[in-house]
Design a protein around this nucleic acid. Sequence first.
DNA 1: ACCATAAGCGGACCTCGGTCCAGTTTTGTT
DNA 2: AACAAAACTGGACCGAGGTCCGCTTATGGT
Lengths: 226, 226
Amino acid sequence: MLYAVFMSSALPPFPKPQEPLGAPPLLEIGATSDEPCLRADAARNRARLLEAAARLIAEHGVAGVTMEAVAAAAQVGKGTVFRRFGDRTGLLMALLDHSARQLQADFLGGPPPLGPDAPPLERLRAFGVAVLYRSAEQLDLQLAAQPEPTRRFSHPAAGSLHTHVSMLLRQILPDADCELLAHTLLASLDPALIHHLTRQRGMPMERLEAAWLGLVARVTGTQAPQ
Amino acid sequence: MLYAVFMSSALPPFPKPQEPLGAPPLLEIGATSDEPCLRADAARNRARLLEAAARLIAEHGVAGVTMEAVAAAAQVGKGTVFRRFGDRTGLLMALLDHSARQLQADFLGGPPPLGPDAPPLERLRAFGVAVLYRSAEQLDLQLAAQPEPTRRFSHPAAGSLHTHVSMLLRQILPDADCELLAHTLLASLDPALIHHLTRQRGMPMERLEAAWLGLVARVTGTQAPQ
DNA sequence: ACCATAAGCGGACCTCGGTCCAGTTTTGTT
DNA sequence: AACAAAACTGGACCGAGGTCCGCTTATGGT
């Protein structure tokens, strides 16, 4: 099946007249309208590129997603791919955008225990579990979409998760350094770590889940559920 | 000044007859002898390569460390660099090897509070602070030496840190999932995170240090010092 | 309809990491 | 001293990401 073939997080026009890496999109969830309103042909090409990339993944795995190959499959010049997505990880991230928005919608406005109608502690627990399983599903893509270390935390999607955890923590632990604590918690949900633990060390997801609940309990000074 | 210009963590001969990524070196600290005992010319070239790489870093920053450039500066063929170090991150890691061994020696056999003569909780606190500042010093190199996500946790040096934290935790919390808890703690010392927090968000190191102590306190259910 | 202009396009080109293998050097054995 | 096997070397070669810039095309005002 295809991934996210619609618009989102548009790149600045090539002569990069914009801020280096601001956080334009992904904050209002219902934003079905493309931010800077791409030209018709550009939007069409964007969709074709994402579709082509998804097809390539399905056929040859993430490793088969070569910028050249994607361009060719979408019958588009290589330059166009880079103009639209910036670089390879940008393209891969765009592929993940759909599920990222879904998750965000769930924890910003969805039903409990993820959404705002549950108590913070419960939301935090549910959040971790959700992220865990979502990452596990798309592990290969998540791994490949990971940018170089200097940008790991700069991406809007990462920022969104951090903001959310940070906020939940602040409600539970008003006196802690929640911003940094949030980084710590999120780090234990890192796709790279999940990959290492499950695929290289053979741990079952249940253990990771239990560890998350245990971690939340320790950090918040509460009892682990059950 | 130069980094580690002596031998360590030798690579398997090119037709890779060995295990994919075992943990041969870095476990006995005093191992001044090269593991598989390189041929004389190979050892000499290895030293020249490390020296050349260090010089390039000093002159042009980590970005200037191109495999070709290193080879040229050491007056050696490019193939030789790859044979010796496997890939770019292998070379960069080798550059960090000296300080890695130093740190390991400190917490395995050095004086308190890092060494085995201090109580575990104190060792854990000191460990984090030491890693924090060591990473901060060599941030650029640490960042550049970070391998792709699928190998971040496979490297022996990372394994060594994890084993140590794991062990300390087991002494403090015999009933917890210390292995995973150790990953969580280590993740908050990740060079990439330090980079983000200090250079992109402008946080002072003192705050990171305090956050580490606070985190250890929460996780172990103890009182933060002072 | 027409036009000016900004936006988009494409593919030649560059760099760099990584591979390969024919030829050379070291080492230890007889 | 001679020799054979093993280890090492170097640079040609390849593929992929990323850049550049002259040309094309959509768009909105008149």
